[in-house]
Design a protein around this nucleic acid. Structure first.
Length: 155
DNA sequence: GCCAACGTTGGC
DNA sequence: GCCAACGTTGGC
């Protein structure tokens, strides 16, 4: 039984276009324990991901990705030259984890946060209630609803 | 660029 | 283990 997730990225740092070009990527740099736990413990190969552009105008869900490798240590935490370096992490005590995801689809237009807020069935989404979590679970019903709306809604 | 929300750190 | 200070996220 595969699960559904939402992952945020600032497009200036890593966008859906970057993912499409790369094909797949490792999701490094997450330094929040709850988000880490999802990646380390719960995300499985084959799980589906809503790719969300944050801190941009407008923010919203921009496409889909798929988990292709389960949680493993985020090596950038041990690299003093990396922007996400964490002196408390080490190869024997990695502290931070990441997954690999693969590009699946870019929507023809972004499905904006403001549009998500207007959908009755999405009012309980983590995104709308705990806005700062950068890796978060999405229910199957929420996932399907968003994908359908994103593919069919015309602005 | 502002700033509210909120997660993390560290002194006690 | 509390909680004030601090840093970051992310919408606007």
């Amino acid at each position: 039984m595969s699960k559904y997730w939402l992952m945020k990225s600032e497009p200036g740092a890593y966008s859906i276009d970057d993912l499409e070009k790369d094909g797949q990527t490792f999701w490094d740099g997450v330094r929040n324990y709850q988000a880490r736990n999802f990646m380390r413990d719960e995300m499985k190969v084959g799980d589906s991901v809503l790719f969300y552009h944050s801190n941009t105008a407008p923010p919203g869900v921009i496409g889909l990705a798929k988990v292709v490798r389960e949680g493993y240590p985020d090596h950038t935490a041990c690299d003093p030259n990396d922007i996400h370096y964490d002196p408390k992490a080490s190869p024997t005590n990695p502290r931070w984890y990441m997954v690999d995801i693969e590009f699946e689809e870019k929507f023809s237009q972004i499905f904006e946060l403001s549009q998500l807020r207007e959908v009755k069935e999405l009012q309980k989404m983590v995104l709308l209630n705990r806005s700062r979590l950068s890796v978060q679970p999405v229910s199957p019903a929420e996932f399907k609803k968003i994908v359908r709306l994103a593919r069919t809604t015309k602005k």
